[in-house]
Amino acid sequence: MTDDPESIERLSGPPKDAATARLERFFDSSADELLGTLYYIVGNVEDARDALQESFLKCWHHRHQLDDIQNLKAWVFRITLNTGRDVRKTAWNRRRTPLPENASREDFPMASTSDSPPDGLIKDEQLQQLRKAVAELPPDYQEVFLLRQNGDLSYPQIAEAISIPLGTVKTRMRAAIRQLRESVGDLS
Protein backbone atom coordinates (compact mmCIF):
# COMPACT_ATOMS: atom_id res chain seq x y z
CA MET A 1 0.00 0.00 0.00
CA THR A 2 1.23 3.48 -0.79
CA ASP A 3 0.98 6.78 1.06
CA ASP A 4 0.51 8.62 -2.23
CA PRO A 5 -2.37 11.16 -1.79
CA GLU A 6 -3.87 10.30 -5.18
CA SER A 7 -3.97 6.59 -4.30
CA ILE A 8 -5.56 7.34 -0.95
CA GLU A 9 -8.22 9.55 -2.59
CA ARG A 10 -9.04 6.82 -5.14
CA LEU A 11 -9.59 4.35 -2.29
CA SER A 12 -11.53 6.60 0.07
CA GLY A 13 -13.28 8.83 -2.45
CA PRO A 14 -12.96 12.59 -2.67
CA PRO A 15 -12.82 14.48 0.61
CA LYS A 16 -16.11 15.89 1.81
CA ASP A 17 -16.51 19.61 2.04
CA ALA A 18 -18.38 21.23 4.93
CA ALA A 19 -21.56 21.76 2.88
CA THR A 20 -21.76 18.13 1.80
CA ALA A 21 -21.22 16.97 5.38
CA ARG A 22 -23.95 19.40 6.51
CA LEU A 23 -26.39 17.93 3.97
CA GLU A 24 -25.63 14.38 5.10
CA ARG A 25 -26.06 15.33 8.78
CA PHE A 26 -29.35 17.04 8.02
CA PHE A 27 -30.75 13.98 6.22
CA ASP A 28 -29.53 11.70 9.01
CA SER A 29 -31.18 13.81 11.71
CA SER A 30 -34.39 14.61 9.79
CA ALA A 31 -35.14 11.32 8.03
CA ASP A 32 -38.13 10.48 10.26
CA GLU A 33 -39.75 13.90 9.80
CA LEU A 34 -39.17 13.83 6.05
CA LEU A 35 -40.48 10.27 5.76
CA GLY A 36 -43.52 11.11 7.86
CA THR A 37 -44.32 14.12 5.71
CA LEU A 38 -43.90 12.08 2.53
CA TYR A 39 -46.10 9.31 3.97
CA TYR A 40 -49.01 11.73 4.23
CA ILE A 41 -48.38 13.18 0.80
CA VAL A 42 -47.98 9.94 -1.17
CA GLY A 43 -50.20 7.64 0.88
CA ASN A 44 -48.00 4.61 1.57
CA VAL A 45 -44.69 3.76 3.15
CA GLU A 46 -43.03 2.20 0.10
CA ASP A 47 -43.62 5.25 -2.07
CA ALA A 48 -42.62 7.53 0.81
CA ARG A 49 -39.30 5.71 1.19
CA ASP A 50 -38.70 5.88 -2.55
CA ALA A 51 -39.54 9.60 -2.55
CA LEU A 52 -37.19 10.19 0.40
CA GLN A 53 -34.37 8.47 -1.43
CA GLU A 54 -35.13 10.41 -4.60
CA SER A 55 -35.23 13.66 -2.58
CA PHE A 56 -31.81 12.95 -1.14
CA LEU A 57 -30.43 12.27 -4.62
CA LYS A 58 -31.89 15.52 -5.95
CA CYS A 59 -30.31 17.42 -3.06
CA TRP A 60 -27.05 15.57 -3.58
CA HIS A 61 -26.94 16.45 -7.28
CA HIS A 62 -27.41 20.13 -6.37
CA ARG A 63 -25.00 20.14 -3.42
CA HIS A 64 -22.82 22.64 -5.26
CA GLN A 65 -25.53 25.22 -4.39
CA LEU A 66 -25.34 24.54 -0.64
CA ASP A 67 -22.97 27.42 0.12
CA ASP A 68 -25.55 29.86 -1.30
CA ILE A 69 -28.49 28.37 0.63
CA GLN A 70 -29.36 30.26 3.79
CA ASN A 71 -32.04 27.88 5.11
CA LEU A 72 -31.05 24.27 4.48
CA LYS A 73 -34.17 22.90 6.16
CA ALA A 74 -36.55 24.91 3.98
CA TRP A 75 -34.56 24.01 0.86
CA VAL A 76 -34.61 20.27 1.62
CA PHE A 77 -38.30 20.32 2.55
CA ARG A 78 -39.13 22.17 -0.69
CA ILE A 79 -37.34 19.51 -2.73
CA THR A 80 -38.94 16.76 -0.66
CA LEU A 81 -42.43 18.24 -1.10
CA ASN A 82 -41.97 18.57 -4.84
CA THR A 83 -40.74 14.99 -5.05
CA GLY A 84 -43.71 13.84 -2.97
CA ARG A 85 -46.10 15.67 -5.29
CA ASP A 86 -44.50 14.01 -8.31
CA VAL A 87 -44.78 10.57 -6.71
CA ARG A 88 -48.38 11.24 -5.66
CA LYS A 89 -49.26 12.30 -9.20
CA THR A 90 -47.66 9.14 -10.56
CA ALA A 91 -49.51 7.04 -7.97
CA TRP A 92 -52.76 8.80 -8.84
CA ASN A 93 -52.19 8.02 -12.49
CA ARG A 94 -51.73 4.36 -11.52
CA ARG A 95 -55.00 4.62 -9.58
CA ARG A 96 -53.47 3.70 -6.25
CA THR A 97 -55.56 3.93 -3.10
CA PRO A 98 -54.05 6.49 -0.72
CA LEU A 99 -53.45 5.72 2.96
CA PRO A 100 -54.69 2.20 3.61
CA GLU A 101 -57.04 1.82 6.57
CA ASN A 102 -54.89 -0.96 8.04
CA ALA A 103 -51.68 1.09 8.32
CA SER A 104 -49.77 -0.04 11.39
CA ARG A 105 -47.82 2.01 13.92
CA GLU A 106 -44.56 0.91 12.32
CA ASP A 107 -45.61 2.50 9.04
CA PHE A 108 -45.27 5.99 10.47
CA PRO A 109 -42.86 7.37 13.06
CA MET A 110 -45.58 9.14 15.10
CA ALA A 111 -45.83 6.43 17.78
CA SER A 112 -47.65 6.64 21.08
CA THR A 113 -45.68 6.43 24.30
CA SER A 114 -47.97 5.69 27.23
CA ASP A 115 -47.65 4.05 30.62
CA SER A 116 -50.64 1.71 30.64
CA PRO A 117 -52.16 -0.53 27.95
CA PRO A 118 -55.62 1.11 28.07
CA ASP A 119 -54.05 4.56 27.73
CA GLY A 120 -51.93 3.23 24.88
CA LEU A 121 -54.99 1.86 23.07
CA ILE A 122 -56.81 5.15 23.45
CA LYS A 123 -53.79 7.10 22.21
CA ASP A 124 -53.35 4.70 19.27
CA GLU A 125 -57.00 5.12 18.32
CA GLN A 126 -56.68 8.90 18.57
CA LEU A 127 -53.53 8.88 16.44
CA GLN A 128 -55.26 6.75 13.82
CA GLN A 129 -58.18 9.15 13.81
CA LEU A 130 -55.82 12.13 13.47
CA ARG A 131 -53.80 10.46 10.67
CA LYS A 132 -56.97 9.79 8.74
CA ALA A 133 -58.12 13.38 9.21
CA VAL A 134 -54.73 14.74 8.04
CA ALA A 135 -54.87 12.44 5.01
CA GLU A 136 -58.29 13.87 4.13
CA LEU A 137 -57.09 17.49 4.19
CA PRO A 138 -56.90 19.19 0.79
CA PRO A 139 -53.30 18.88 -0.51
CA ASP A 140 -52.56 22.60 -0.06
CA TYR A 141 -53.67 22.54 3.59
CA GLN A 142 -51.96 19.22 4.21
CA GLU A 143 -48.58 20.46 2.98
CA VAL A 144 -48.64 23.56 5.19
CA PHE A 145 -49.81 21.53 8.19
CA LEU A 146 -47.13 18.85 7.72
CA LEU A 147 -44.34 21.37 7.18
CA ARG A 148 -45.34 23.08 10.41
CA GLN A 149 -45.92 19.94 12.50
CA ASN A 150 -43.45 17.41 11.05
CA GLY A 151 -40.93 19.79 9.57
CA ASP A 152 -41.10 22.23 12.49
CA LEU A 153 -40.75 25.08 10.00
CA SER A 154 -41.88 28.59 10.90
CA TYR A 155 -44.56 30.25 8.79
CA PRO A 156 -41.98 32.37 6.93
CA GLN A 157 -39.91 29.25 6.25
CA ILE A 158 -42.99 27.45 4.91
CA ALA A 159 -43.78 30.41 2.66
CA GLU A 160 -40.24 30.26 1.32
CA ALA A 161 -40.26 26.47 0.97
CA ILE A 162 -43.40 26.29 -1.15
CA SER A 163 -43.13 29.74 -2.75
CA ILE A 164 -46.40 31.27 -1.53
CA PRO A 165 -47.13 34.46 0.42
CA LEU A 166 -46.91 34.37 4.21
CA GLY A 167 -50.59 35.33 4.53
CA THR A 168 -51.57 32.35 2.39
CA VAL A 169 -49.55 30.04 4.65
CA LYS A 170 -51.37 31.36 7.72
CA THR A 171 -54.77 31.10 6.03
CA ARG A 172 -54.11 27.51 4.95
CA MET A 173 -52.90 26.57 8.43
CA ARG A 174 -55.99 28.05 10.08
CA ALA A 175 -58.21 26.23 7.59
CA ALA A 176 -56.34 22.95 8.17
CA ILE A 177 -56.67 23.25 11.94
CA ARG A 178 -60.35 24.15 11.65
CA GLN A 179 -60.99 21.13 9.40
CA LEU A 180 -59.02 18.83 11.71
CA ARG A 181 -60.98 20.04 14.74
CA GLU A 182 -64.22 19.39 12.89
CA SER A 183 -63.03 15.91 11.90
CA VAL A 184 -61.58 14.69 15.18
CA GLY A 185 -63.01 17.02 17.80
CA ASP A 186 -61.10 17.29 21.06
CA LEU A 187 -58.64 14.40 21.42
CA SER A 188 -57.44 15.31 24.90
Rank of each mutant, 00 (worst) to 15 (best):
I158F: 03
H64W: 14
Q126H: 14
L35Y: 11
D4Q: 08
T2C: 08
L137E: 00
I122E: 06
E54D: 15
Q179D: 11
Q179V: 03
G120Q: 11
L146N: 12
D28S: 11
V76H: 09
H64C: 05
R94W: 08
D68N: 08
D28A: 14
A133C: 04
A51F: 00
Y40P: 04
F27Y: 07
K73I: 00
R172Y: 08
L130R: 14
L38I: 01
S104Q: 14
E101Y: 06
V76M: 07
L187H: 13
V45G: 03
R148L: 04
K58T: 12
D47H: 10
P14W: 06
S183V: 00
L57D: 09
T113C: 08
E160V: 01
G167S: 12
R25S: 10
M110S: 12
D86R: 15
D4H: 07
L137P: 00
D119N: 04
F26L: 11
D47V: 01
M110K: 05
S29E: 14
N82I: 02
W75T: 08
K58E: 13
T168E: 10
R63N: 07
A159H: 01
S154P: 05
R178V: 08
E143M: 10
T168C: 01
L23A: 02
A18Q: 04
L57S: 13
I69G: 02
A133N: 05
A19Y: 02
D140W: 02
R88F: 12
K89V: 03
